[in-house]
């Protein structure tokens, strides 16, 4: 048990990535404010990047493939976040609030 904690390997990073992914998923499910939902989606994307980087470090010695995939994932995560923020800003201009449940009620 102590050996597993001391010898840091791929599994440690995969556990970190899993915890971050689940935290992000929980954030998407429970937050009412849409800005926070977007931030939670960003956490999920970063967890995927950590996964790729860890696999690259421990399996692919040249690191090129993993770095490439990670950079692409990161770019798409940032793009998704920025586009979501722009949409949220427009929604705010139209409604004056960003509470998902209020917007749903207003639509109904």
């Amino acid at each position: 048990m102590i050996n597993a904690l001391v010898n840091i390997g791929l599994a440690h990073f995969l556990i970190l990535s899993l915890i971050l992914f689940l935290t992000g998923l929980l954030g998407v499910l429970i937050s009412r404010n849409m800005l926070r939902t977007v931030m939670s989606l960003f956490i999920m994307s970063v967890s995927a990047v950590i996964n790729f980087a860890a696999f690259g470090y421990y399996c692919d010695k040249s690191m090129e493939n993993a770095n490439m995939i990670s950079v692409f994932v990161l770019i798409f995560a940032v793009i998704q976040t920025i586009i979501a923020l722009v949409i949220l800003y427009k929604i705010y201009q139209a409604n004056e609030f960003l509470d998902a449940e209020k917007i749903k009620d207003k639509e109904n």
């Binding site: 990073f13 970190l16 960003f42 970063v46 990047v49 950590i50 980087a53 860890a54 690259g56 470090y57 690191m63 993993a66 770095n67 990670s70 950079v71 990161l74 770019i75 940032v78 976040t81 920025i82």
Partner: peptide
Amino acid sequence: SSLIYLYLNSVYLSVFQFILCGLFL
């Protein structure tokens, strides 16, 4: 998370994330 990438020897990724997400996003 940028420091984690540094730990994993992904210097380019770490700098990239810090600039793109930390200083921009």
